[in-house]
Design a protein around this nucleic acid. Structure first.
Lengths: 208, 208
DNA sequence: TAGATTGTTAATCGATTAACAATC
DNA sequence: TAGATTGTTAATCGATTAACAATC
């Protein structure tokens, strides 16, 4: 019941990848079946929440038995459109950009970095991970040719907005921003943020 | 009113670093005063929420005028215990660990990496950023000597839990986990998670 | 002063949880 | 069958927002 995208709260969508990640770990450990209770304990949330979240998309369990680990895993992959490989680009070839370009964890989870860009002449032409760094000016053509939807921004904060503008103009509709600054983009473009310092600062509130 | 730590919802605490980050940017641009409305537009949230959040900690504004950028910035730094420098260690000297060790963005925001560790003999003794990588076995002594409270985990998922156990046993009370796996730790220990793939997977739900 | 904006209250909105009939 | 667990409903809980008196 309720398969309309509009029906599903954003906060629920945000938990699906967490469920998927837990199911992958269970699958890797050879587990065949699980239950909302087991998943809940694993993740530190309530079993009712897991059942409620899943109920937005269908009925995936069996009374008395629970969920097939592989079955629910596949359903979630499908719901999240991860049964294909999404190409990604990374803009910024500094420390963070290099680490992201070299990160091998994308492939098994639905994504593949296919290009790296920077506007610094001293970086263009060098390699980060397996990629030769190209000039930012090549982004629009590259994005169009390769039907890229996602980009990661790993440039200094002062350049992040102009890079975002370029990405949006190039047709990118999902941005993962590593620069510690809020971006302003059209409503149709999704932006997610990663800033480790925010997490650390949140913790220190509770210290001392 | 309401300066009791228990009073303040965790979700409110999580927004304070975002406000602080915005105020830093305003300060850098030479702005003297701001208002809840301006901050709200900047951050894409409601002005009422900002005023409500701040009201948990005191009265920082003036009717008709708004907030002193520098004043509110300092208040938030104080509330978040950022008017000192917190030492950090990083465990795992791979791509992510190296990037984090080299990241220069911690210093201005209350943190400083002071040590890097790994258990791989081929990495111990090498340099990541400005640090020589030490053996994980040196963690307990190092944490005690330097009164370290925070650690970042950047090891493969399969080792993350045992590293977390070692950190907790060493006296670490705040963990920022870059490994894509949920950690199980005592209630007194805070854990925050960074997994870029979760963010990307959330976005693809809305694609196509 | 007149205009603007705060801090706070009360109302609204939405998310989480408890409980249980259905059923494997 | 007996035990276990789902999917769903209704109740609870908590967070967000609208509105406004106070006042700079």
């Amino acid at each position: 019941m309720g398969n309309n995208l509009q029906d599903v709260p954003d906060i629920v969508v945000g938990r699906l990848p967490i469920y998927l990640r837990a199911l992958s770990a269970m699958q890797a450990s050879g587990k065949q079946y699980t239950s909302s209770h087991e998943l809940a304990e694993w993740l530190g949330i309530s079993s009712a929440q897991i059942r409620k979240d899943l109920s937005h998309f269908g009925e995936f369990g069996k009374q008395g038995t629970g969920y097939s680990v592989a079955g629910l895993h596949d359903q979630l992959r499908h719901i999240l459109h991860l049964n294909r490989e999404w190409p990604l680009i990374i803009v910024g070839a500094g420390n963070i950009g290099s680490a992201v370009a070299s990160y091998t964890g994308f492939a098994q989870r639905g994504f593949r970095v296919i290009g790296a860009f920077d506007n610094d002449p001293s970086k263009i032409g060098t390699k980060v991970g397996p990629f030769i760094v190209h000039d930012n000016r090549e982004i629009p053509a590259f994005v169009k040719e390769n039907h890229v939807r996602h980009a990661m921004i790993a440039v200094p904060a002062e350049y992040a907005q102009q890079v975002a503008d370029l990405l949006v103009a190039s047709g990118i509709t999902g941005i993962l921003n590593y620069a510690p600054i809020n971006l302003s983009v059209p409503a149709k473009v999704r932006v997610e943020y990663i800033d480790p310092v925010l997490h650390l600062q949140k913790m220190t509130y509770y210290f001392e």
